[in-house]
C-alpha cells in the first residue's frame, strides 16, 4: 500500500514500511548521511540525516518509518542547528590526521559537512591532492597545510607552492600536536613554520597562545623522538 508523505510542501507517495529517507529521495530533496548504507546498516547512529516533523520533533530520516499524511521539512533553522551540533560532536571525537588519511584529496565527507555547516577544525591537508612522497612536508618544506583551516579547495599545494596559512589556524590542541609530530618526523623546524605562520597570523588575537602551544608541542615531539 502506498502512503502519502509531504516533503517541504511537496507531495510524494511511497510504499508503507519505508523510511522517510526513501520519500526524500523520491522528492529529490537530499539530506546528508554518514552511517547509512542501505539495508546493511540502519542503526541511525550518526544523526546527520535529522529532519523536522510537523509536530516539531527531530527524527533521523534513515530510520523513521513513514505514515499517511506525514509532513517532513528538511531545511529549517532547527534542523540546521541540530546538524551543526552533530558535525561538532563527530569532529570532537575524530582523530584528525588528514595528512595520512586515505580519503584526502577531495573525498572527505566530513570536510564537506564541516564546510556546509561552518564547523572549524579540519586542516587543509584534507583537500590536498599530494600524497606520500609528493607531500611538501615530507619533502621538508614548512607547508602550513596541517595547521591551517580547510575550505579553500586547496589551490596552493596543488600548484606546487606550500600553504601559507591565509585562511587562519586550526586551534585544536590535539591537531596541533599531531601536526607537530608530522613536522618533526620529516625534519621541519619550528622556526621555519613560525616564520611562514607570522605572515598572516601575527595580528590574530590568539597568535601568542597558538605560538606557545606550537612551541610546547614541538618540545614534546622532539623529546619523544630522543627517547
Amino acid at each position: 500500500m502506498m502512503v502519502r508523505v509531504i516533503v517541504n510542501g511537496k507531495e510524494v507517495h511511497v510504499p508503507e514500511g519505508e523510511t522517510i529517507l526513501t520519500a526524500l529521495k523520491k522528492a529529490g530533496d537530499a539530506v546528508p548521511t554518514l552511517c547509512f548504507f542501505g539495508h546493511m546498516y540502519r542503526e541511525a547512529s550518526c544523526r546527520m540525516c535529522l529532519v523536522e516533523l510537523s509536530n516539531g520533533k527531530l527524527v533521523p530520516a534513515c530510520a523513521y518509518p513513514v505514515s499517511d499524511g506525514l509532513e517532513v521539512r528538511t531545511d529549517t533553522p532547527r534542523v540546521r542547528e541540530a546538524r551543526r551540533t552533530v558535525v561538532e560532536f563527530i569532529l570532537s571525537i575524530h582523530r584528525i590526521r588528514c595528512w595520512s588519511c586515505p580519503r584526502k584529496g577531495g573525498n572527505c565527507e566530513l570536510l564537506k559537512l564541516a564546510t556546509a555547516y561552518w564547523v572549524e577544525g579540519i586542516p587543509v591537508c584534507s583537500s590536498c591532492p599530494l600524497y606520500g612522497r609528493d607531500c611538501l612536508v615530507v619533502k621538508g618544506e614548512p607547508c602550513l597545510g596541517p595547521i591551517t583551516l580547510a575550505g579553500c579547495s586547496d589551490p596552493c599545494p596543488s600548484n606546487g607552492s606550500p600553504c601559507i596559512g591565509c585562511r587562519g589556524p586550526v586551534t585544536r590542541k590535539d591537531v596541533l600536536e599531531a601536526a607537530t609530530q608530522f613536522y618533526v618526523s620529516n625534519g621541519v623546524e619550528l622556526k621555519d613554520v613560525l616564520e611562514v605562520a607570522s605572515m598572516f597570523w601575527e595580528g590574530l588575537p590568539n597568535y601568542d597562545a597558538l605560538k606557545a602551544s606550537l612551541e610546547e608541542a614541538f618540545k614534546k615531539a622532539l623529546g619523544g623522538g630522543e627517547d
Binding site: P155, C156, N159, G160, S161, C166
Partner: peptide, 16 residues
C-alpha cells in the same frame, strides 16, 4: 592557479 592572488607565479620563475 587562482582568480585572485595567483599562485603559479614566483620570484625568479614559475612555481608550477
Amino acid at each position: 592557479g587562482r582568480i585572485v592572488n595567483p599562485n603559479t607565479l614566483g620570484v625568479g620563475g614559475l612555481l608550477r
